[in-house]
Computed example of a mutant assay.
Amino acid sequence: MSLGNSPEDERPIPDESQEARPSVGRALQQARIEAGLTVDDVSSATRVRLAIVHSIEADDFTPCGGDVYARGHIRTLARAVHLDPGPLIARYDAEHGGRPAPTPAAPMFEAERIRPERRGPNWTAAMVAAIVVVIGFVGFTAVKGGDGGSRAQVAEGATPAVGRTASATPKKAKPAAPTGEPSDSAIAAAPQDKVTVQVSAPDGRSWISAKDHNGRMLFDGLLKKGESKTFQDSTKINLILGDAGAIDLYVNGKKIDDTFKPGAVERLTYTKGDPVAG
């Protein structure tokens, strides 16, 4: 009679932490919902098609077209919903076989390195060196003769014009290169027949989207801390702020006093007659 453990007792205990951790698609979906964004918002911000966003959130990476494209989509979607893409890509690699190992470099042939090929004397290089020496000697002789002539002229009594060098016209300093973003004074002096909107992130960061009156995309991306963007149109500017509490707005040269809360998503429209939110 055996007193050992039964096969059922030797079964590995499942890791509850691994089971509790959400999948890649589920983590992206939860972060999107917590950020107050719809699938349409994420698709517009990242330019990833709606069908692919839905498939990734359902952990179906087949429409991505391969592991390389799947990792790129995961990284793009994670940044749009304020997630660190590193752990998500590592989890994707662990579940789908990981990255392919690099191809080793071809070994060096020791025989070729030990026995170098014998070469004859390079007569062309010797001729070029000789010509360079001759030209250099001729040039040195000519310069030396010219210096002697100029010294003789000074000795005969011709006073050199020393003051000409001091009275030469000073070089004008080059103007500073214009910056890409107009200043606050430039915004205040903007033409009255247009609407000018400046978006800045002094204390945080936020994803923003800006379109003109024709629906043409002016900017779509992440505005980092300390950065600012200025948009101008003849009729109106349409804005979407992913984190409105981190944004300061200046419309037609005037600061907008808002009560936006951190993390709030705001859709705004400004025209030539503002500052008044549309």
Rank of each mutant, 00 (worst) to 15 (best):
I187S: 00
E227N: 13
R21P: 00
A111L: 14
P22C: 07
N122G: 10
V143Y: 12
S43I: 06
R79T: 08
A126M: 10
G221H: 05
S206L: 01
A210P: 09
A158S: 01
P107K: 12
D84S: 15
S167W: 02
I89P: 01
I74D: 00
G97A: 14
A78Y: 01
N5Q: 13
N214R: 08
K261C: 04
R99N: 10
I135D: 07
D258P: 03
S55A: 15
V143K: 07
L222Y: 12
L239F: 01
W207P: 09
K225F: 01
A201H: 08
P170V: 06
S43A: 15
G145K: 12
S44H: 03
T124L: 13
T269E: 10
E34K: 14
A51L: 04
R164Y: 02
A101S: 15
P275C: 15
V251Q: 04
P63Y: 05
R99W: 05
F260I: 12
R26C: 06
I131W: 09
K225R: 15
D40K: 07
D84H: 04
P160K: 00
D84R: 12
G86M: 03
D203E: 14
A177Q: 03
A201Y: 09
P121E: 02
T169E: 11
A189G: 00
A246P: 01
Y69T: 07
D59W: 06
A90P: 06
I89G: 07
A58T: 04
S2V: 11
S185L: 00
S200F: 00
R47W: 05
D9L: 13
M108W: 02
G148S: 11
R79S: 12
S185N: 00
V195D: 00
P7G: 06
G263N: 08
P104L: 15
G97H: 09
